[in-house]
């Protein structure tokens, strides 16, 4: 009996060691256990094939869009990159070691950067159930930052960060960097340091692909759907008083109602709307107009100046060389890649 209990405990400990780890480590385990990996591969060939087929076209589109954006960025913000020491480093190589005792040096000594991302936001940070891998704009940008600091995209570890715990995570050094759809605002800036803005979220509209609605001005007399009690509901009542606002419990229900022709548009933050577009790009579109402004920025612990500068330089570099635009197009399909937001989130309008 005692032996059995001991065995169970040991087995449980092993299982935890395996499953309690991050998706990357899980991948390593799968590599070590060929049968499991084989089963997994056999399970998802169609999905992988579909993704492969889709990838080149998106990449090509992004490449085409990139040069103009990159040129605009070059003209806009050269000073920040220079100040952050971006000039001292050649592309592809690791960043020179920072001074002893700084947070950046600690990250460099550890050999990987720990980043808190969302796991449940399909466009920004999403643990894809089909592949068991993280994907999204935040995730891709974080990999770019790892590449800037270490010269390798794989020198990174992800930790799930939900809205309730992400600021404590930084203050406790559980993560080095937070990239989790976080809106930069003055209140949060008192607790953590924000990097440059890398995305501007805003309330927008989701309409059927063949719709003629392009913005608020076309909404008079139309039925617009939102969720009961949301800020989106309040905003749309203020900004489009002539629209007929229809309320549901979830956005999925709103979209169903639109499919059935009962409402003409759905309104909320554009990253949620783009999630619907990403799923069925032929059915929906998001017009370019936004009527609120929420700059997304990454966060580091207050006072980690060197790390903040390195992240800023990495982001600046990605904006300059077109990586940012390519990742934007890859993760947020269905809208035109905008000009990069200004470096200081306070200047985002």
């Amino acid at each position: 009996m005692r032996k059995i209990v001991l065995m169970v405990v040991l087995m449980a400990a092993f299982i935890i060691a395996v499953t309690g780890c991050t998706p990357q480590q899980q991948a390593a385990v799968e590599k070590a256990a060929p049968t499991v990996a084989a089963a997994a591969k056999a399970a998802a060939p169609t999905i992988a094939a579909a993704a492969q087929a889709a990838a080149p076209t998106i990449a090509a589109a992004a490449q085409a869009a990139a040069p103009t954006v990159a040129a605009a960025a070059k003209a806009a913000a050269p000073t920040v990159a220079a100040a952050a020491g971006g000039a001292a480093k050649s592309a592809g190589a690791a960043l020179p070691k920072a001074a002893e005792g700084t947070a950046l040096r600690k990250v460099q000594d550890r050999g990987k950067v720990i980043v808190g991302v969302k796991y449940d936001v399909p466009t920004f940070g999403f643990l894809n159930p089909a592949t068991n891998k993280l994907e999204g704009f935040d995730v891709d940008l974080a990999k770019g930052i790892a590449k800037y600091i270490f010269g390798s995209e794989d020198a990174i570890e992800f930790q799930q960060a939900v809205s309730a715990n992400r600021i404590p995570f930084l203050q406790n050094d559980t993560v080095d960097l937070i990239a989790s759809t976080m809106t930069a605002n003055a209140d949060r800036a008192n607790q953590i340091d924000f990097t440059r803005a890398y995305y501007v979220a805003g309330q927008g509209l989701l309409v059927p692909a063949n719709s003629t609605i392009t913005g608020l001005k076309d909404l008079a007399g139309k039925a617009v759907c939102s969720v009961t009690g949301s800020t989106s509901e309040k905003n749309i009542r203020e900004k489009a008083p002539q629209a007929n606002v229809v309320l549901f419990q979830t956005y999925s229900e709103c979209v169903q109602a639109m499919d059935a022709g009962r409402v003409d548009a759905v309104t909320t933050d554009d990253n949620i709307l783009l999630g619907f577009v990403k799923q069925s790009p032929n059915k929906y579109k998001v017009p370019d107009e936004r009527f609120t402004v929420e700059p997304y920025a990454m966060g580091v612990k207050k006072g980690n100046k060197e790390l903040l500068e390195a992240v800023n330089a990495a982001l600046e570099g990605m904006i300059k060389d077109g990586t940012w635009a390519a990742l934007y197009a890859k993760n947020l399909p269905g809208i035109k890649v905008p000009n990069p937001p200004p470096a200081d989130w306070r200047e985002v309008k």
Partner: peptide, 18 residues
């Protein structure tokens, strides 16, 4: 889930996001 574990219920939430 409050400290970011990816257990059964959280995985369920992730699944229905997709």
């Amino acid at each position: 889930a409050i400290i970011g574990t990816v257990e059964l219920a959280q995985r369920g939430r992730i699944v229905f996001q997709g």
